[in-house]
Structures are given as structure tokens and as C-alpha cells.
Amino acid sequence: MNPLLVFTVLPLGIFLTWASISMLRQKWMYLLVADSFLPGKPSLAMLPNGILMMLVPFSDWITALPKPLSGMISIFLIICLAAALIGCFWMPRPLQPQWMKDSDERLKNGTDAAAVKYRHRLTGLPAPDEQPRGPQHDH
């Protein structure tokens, strides 16, 4: 076991796994920033990447296991690596949570909060969440 991997890659893997699970549960949404940099869903791809990074420091122990077990763990790690790499560039819709699909649909239709606010700013009308400015008179 390499101590450098234990003190660098293992904590990063724990963090990425925690952050990705928290993002899926809509508790900690900061990983969504990564989705604007790549065409896929890197925020979702961080889960298999985090699992891979948590297990890499223990590769010596994994290879010391009996061959069938170490082979299955190795295949699992290869699948995690492939899912993490492919997920950054393409994530199938069935693997995305429903709230992410709904958000993507609102962005495509132009009905997300930022687009609505921008549209109202261009027309000069107050956005639905803003109060009208100036004095109000009932006639």
C-alpha cells in the first residue's frame, strides 16, 4: 500500500463519493457546476470515479485476494473507470435522476428561472417573483 495514495487519492475519493451522493439527494448541489464544462453529466460521473479512487490505494490487498475475487473486484473497478470517463461526455437519460431530467427540460424550453427573469427584463415587465415598482393605485 502506497502511503502517498492513502493520503491523497483516498480522501479525494471519499469526498467525491459523498458529494455525488449528496448531489443525487439534492442536499449539496455544487457538483452541478461541472456539468457546464463538459457535454455529459460529470456531476453524476463523480460517483463511480469516487468509488474507484477509494479502492485504488488498496490495490495491493486486492491483488493478494484469491483470483476469482480479485478478478471480480478488478472488473468492477474497470467498469467504474469506464462509467466515470464516459459519463463526463455522455450520460443516458435513464441513468439521470428525475429532477435532473426536469431541469434539463426547463432549460431546453426556456422556462427556467434565469430565462424567465431575463425575458421580463428585456420587455420591461416585472418578473413573476418581483413586486411591481412605483406607487400602486386602485381605480
Rank of each mutant, 00 (worst) to 15 (best):
V116A: 09
L24E: 13
K41H: 07
L32E: 14
L38Y: 01
D138N: 13
S59Y: 00
L122I: 11
L122M: 15
F15K: 04
L69Q: 04
A34R: 00
S36D: 14
R133H: 10
L38V: 00
H139C: 11
L69N: 01
W90Y: 15
W61D: 11
M100V: 05
A127I: 07
V6E: 12
V33L: 13
L95K: 03
G110R: 05
L44G: 07
S103V: 04
K67F: 08
A82W: 12
M46G: 06
P68G: 04
C80M: 08
R133N: 09
P42Y: 00
W90F: 14
F37W: 14
G110T: 02
P3D: 11
D35I: 02
I75N: 00
G40K: 01
P97R: 04
I14F: 09
L44T: 02
L10V: 05
L24T: 07
Q96F: 03
L107C: 08
T63E: 13
M54Y: 06
A84V: 04
G50E: 10
L16G: 02
S22Q: 14
M46A: 15
L85N: 07
G110Y: 09
A64D: 08
A115P: 02
L95P: 00
A19G: 06
R121G: 08
N109V: 09
P126F: 12
V33R: 13
L38F: 05
